[in-house]
Design a protein around this nucleic acid. Structure first.
Lengths: 267, 267
DNA sequence: CGATGTATTGACCAGCTTCAAGTAACGTGG
DNA sequence: CCACGTTACTTGAAGCTGGTCAATACATCG
């Protein structure tokens, strides 16, 4: 059983720092927008996004970005680093719902109800772009194309959770780990296709994998070892992961393959 | 292991019939709109919805409404009956993602990508309201308040999957069944608060519960029996379910309680 | 140089699956 | 009206997947 105690840990509570708005924080020069992985925007859309942007923040790894049950939580776009969404049971058992990578929107689901029904925690140091509280409605009203993008993001966020639910509900431990590594690898590689040849940076601990796949830490360890011995998984230091045979992993995971990612809207 | 063979079953393939547009199928008189459970719309919004509505269809129980991988699938609002969304592995194992009740939107996620990444199957006879293929973009463009509602629906659909993922990943069999029954009961009761005193109509088979909670049919049977003997669950004939002590079930399921449902937008 | 977080491995066992068989309810056609 | 097919539900027995407990190794870091 995995218990989430980090909320009450003083280290986690104190481990954040803020950065005021950087000098060149304009959305036009946002490095994410240069990636082919993200959809292009026109000038009007860019101006609208810019006008709703409030500031950039930086937080340390392990910072709690959104608390479960929090009302009137923040609205962010993740610019740098990884985070995860999670839910806990009343006795503390934690389930990771999905992992967030640069470009992902934080707080959309929560703004649609009176309180957040999941928490969000940074896995690495993160850089965030924060938006005005009423940005969602403003986007819809003033710029329907961006409102449409919000629906797109919500739908695709659900698709990630759908895939994880399929894994946790119907895949064996080996299949789950293979599927998760594969999905994260594809998403991470899409952000930097060139560098992905030699492996991809995936700042996961085995505890993260366990909490995402509904398994115990011990069993994840044994399963990773199996995959490693089968030559399907190789992890170097500092979270650098190489998956030498993606197709074999996909077959093992009973995953439809190949997987092609559509360009994402970026708000 | 649960294998989904029903796609290839001739009974399922032939078991649908269509109904042409009914005489009084205007949205203004839609019985769903009279429920307090759904948000009110103004005249302009109602006219917009009406203009995008194409026809009403009726299908028999077990009909496949959306096929996994289908491109250019339909866009429906479920008016009557229950359905479920599901995904399958390449070897046929099936996971139910969530259950759809009247008022739920079908096809939103699928329209946001080039192909449906999940299937939808009717559990009972269903009545559906179908919309034009480009209705999503039209709604966003012409009536931002309804575009916002679409985002709302997508976000809340994800919340259901989140809850199921928490169950499947971190709850024991007893807790999972308790949580599922409770969530479905609350949603069903919201549709007809008056009738809910004496139990609620839930057209679930034990196989559905098994496929939704990632357990085997046999184990669901034993678990339901336990709950029944504990006096927490009572099922009469024809899928009428009574949960005598909701708070006790919630405590058993480690679910935050009470659960209040916000009024849903209805498109 | 302890302190802390992460990874690793062994031993034991329990929750759940699988296999198997049988009952019950219902509709359909002879 | 009964025989039959179909679907849903029930129960027992055996065994496997993965959990729990425990101990150790290893790294980083203030």
């Amino acid at each position: 059983m995995s218990i989430d105690v980090s909320q009450s840990s003083p280290a986690a509570a104190l481990s954040f720092r803020r950065a005021s708005r950087a000098d060149d924080a304009s959305c036009a020069h946002c490095p994410l927008r240069r990636m082919a992985h993200f959809q292009a925007v026109n000038a009007a859309e860019l101006a609208m996004i810019e006008s709703l942007k409030q500031a950039e923040f930086e937080y340390d790894a392990h910072t709690l970005l959104v608390q479960e049950g929090q009302s009137d939580g923040p609205l962010y776009t993740l610019l740098e680093g990884w985070a995860f969404r999670f839910k806990t049971l009343t006795d503390g058992r934690r389930q990771i719902l999905d992992f967030l990578q640069p470009g992902d929107f934080i707080g959309l689901q929560q703004k649609m109800s009176d309180a957040a029904n999941h928490g969000v925690r940074a896995m690495t140091a993160v850089r965030l772009c924060s938006f005005a509280r009423d940005a969602l409605w403003t986007l819809h009203r003033e710029m329907p194309s961006l409102g449409y993008d919000l629906t797109w993001l919500a739908a695709h966020s659900e698709a990630h959770v759908d895939e994880n639910l399929l894994s946790v509900g119907r895949r064996t431990a080996r299949e789950r780990v293979a599927a998760l590594l594969l999905m994260l690898h594809v998403r991470a590689a899409a952000q930097d296709p060139a560098a992905a040849r030699h492996g991809v940076l995936m700042p996961l601990t085995q505890q993260h994998i366990a909490d995402a796949m509904g398994l115990s830490l011990v069993h994840i360890n044994r399963t990773l070892r199996q995959l490693s011995q089968a030559g399907l998984y190789h992890s170097t230091s500092a979270g650098h992961v190489r998956l030498p045979d993606l197709a074999a992993l996909a077959a093992l995971a009973k995953l439809r393959w190949p997987l092609k990612l559509a360009p994402r809207p970026l708000i």
